[in-house]
Structure formats: C-alpha cells, structure tokens
Amino acid sequence: MQQSLSGKAKTRPLTPANVTVGRRRWSERGYALLFLGPSLALLAVFIFWPMLKTLYMSFFLTDKFGHITVFNGLGNYRSLLQDASYWASLGATLSYVAVVAVLTIVLGLILAVAAQQQLKGIGFFKTLFSSTMGISVSVAAIFWLFAFNPSVGVFAQLSQALHLPEINWLADPHFALLAIIITTVWMNLGFTFLILFGALQQVPRSLYDAADVAGVAKRTQFLKVTLPMISPTLFFVTTVTLIDAFKSFGLIDLMTAGGPSNATNLLVYRVYQDAFLNGSYAQASTESVVLTLLIAVVTLVQFKLFGKRVTY
C-alpha cells in the first residue's frame, strides 16, 4: 500500500497520451529527415561543399591542377585589388548590370502597359513580346552574331542604307559591351514582360474606376495607382534582373569570349578564364568570393532602399 502510494507520487503516470506524443515527435523528425535528406545531400555535395571549398582556396596558392600548395592569408585578395585589369572588369560589370537592369525594367514595363490596351491583334504581340523566354542562350547568341555581323548583319545594312558610319559591333572595344547589353536586354524582356503584364492584370479595375470618379487624370493614375500596385512585382523583377546580370556568362562566352581587349570580360567570365584557361584556381576562387559579396551587398542595399516601400 505504502509502496504504491510513494510510487505514484514519484513518477508521472505513464498514460497512453504521453507515450504517443513522445513517439510522434521522434517519428515526425525522422520523417522530416527522410523527406529532406535527398535534396539536402544534393545541396551539400553540389552547392555547400564547393562554396566552402572556394572560400578555403581563396586563402591559399594552388598549382596548375588546382591542388593547394601554400597558405597565402589575404594575399590573393591584396593582389586582386591591386590588379588594374580587375578594376576594369569590375567597372565594366557594374555599368553592364546597371544599364541592363534599367533598360530591362523600363522596356518591359512599356511593353506590358502597351499589351494591356484593348486593341485588335494585341494577342499576337503578347505572344511576340514574351517569346524570348522560350529561346535558349545559344540560339539567341547565333541570331545576334548574325545581326551584328559587319558585312551581312541587319545593323550594318541599316547604317549603310542611312549612310551612317559603319560599326564593327563585336570587334570594337567601344561597342562590344553595348552589343552584349542589347542582347541581354532582349533576352530578359520576355520574362520581365510576362511577369509585369501579369501584375498589371492583377490590379483591380475598380481602383481605376474610383480614380476616374474622383477626377484623377490618367497619367497621374499610372503614378498613383498602377506603380504602387505593381511595386512588389517591380521589386522582384529588379532583384532577379540584377542578380542575373551579375551572373551573365553564356552570351559573353558565345559572342565575344571576353574580348575585344577585355572590354566584355565581366567578373563571372573572368573567373571562368582564370580557373579553366589560365589554371589560376586560387585567384579564381578569390574572385568568386568577391563577386558573391558584391551581389550580396547590392541585393541588401536594394532591400534596404526599396524593401519598405513595397510592402502593403
């Protein structure tokens, strides 16, 4: 009798409910791990490990085969920042990113607004505007290589017909980056147009009706109703375009391969060249880390500057 009383006092009654809760928590974690496991493993092998390895390698020197030789501390970073050609690449990249982002957003918005008008045959143009989404980088590169060709290209023939000075777009260091910018913007437009068009369609008609009744002019309505309403989408598109522009590789590789005289040797392409053509793995790693930091900072600044204004 006494024993059973004291026993009761010490231990918590082991009810079925307690047991199942404990078991369920365990099995829930087990299941979570089971489901997440495969993708976590893939991420670890192909993303996290290379990232850490890159960071690690940026503090060392490497041989031709990418093997680590000597610890170099911040030496790689120091020499990178003293390299004039690196600064030129950085400058080209920043101007490329800025111009691409501005042109993509502005042109995309103009096309999206145009496609919203109730006009005959607008459906055809909607398809046309978004069509670059379905074109691969290689096809686009070939298409634009032809367009920029100094003898048979559209641009050359146009300048000939208008008696303008001939430009060898891809071979002239002053115009090669512009050619890449034009091509990138063209490639970006399909996606940007589609997303912005969707956002415009989402703005309730009644908001414009209310503005009409209140006597707000159409142009003011665009600034006071349309832009605020699509601001979250604009923010998203801007972020994606910026990050994408920083990472541009395919078009450059296929159209100019970084040339002429490094005019289009943007940061990502430089990483590729240093690692796989020059065999300077440590230097390429350092550049990668710096590029990652750069993208992070730009994105962060963007969030700080505009993030607050788009949440409603």
Partner: peptide, 8 residues
C-alpha cells in the same frame, strides 16, 4: 462593391 480601397 469591392470598396476600391488602395491597399498601399
């Protein structure tokens, strides 16, 4: 009917 309020 939808009140047409500006969410921002």
């Amino acid at each position: 009917q939808s009140y047409a309020l500006y969410p921002f």
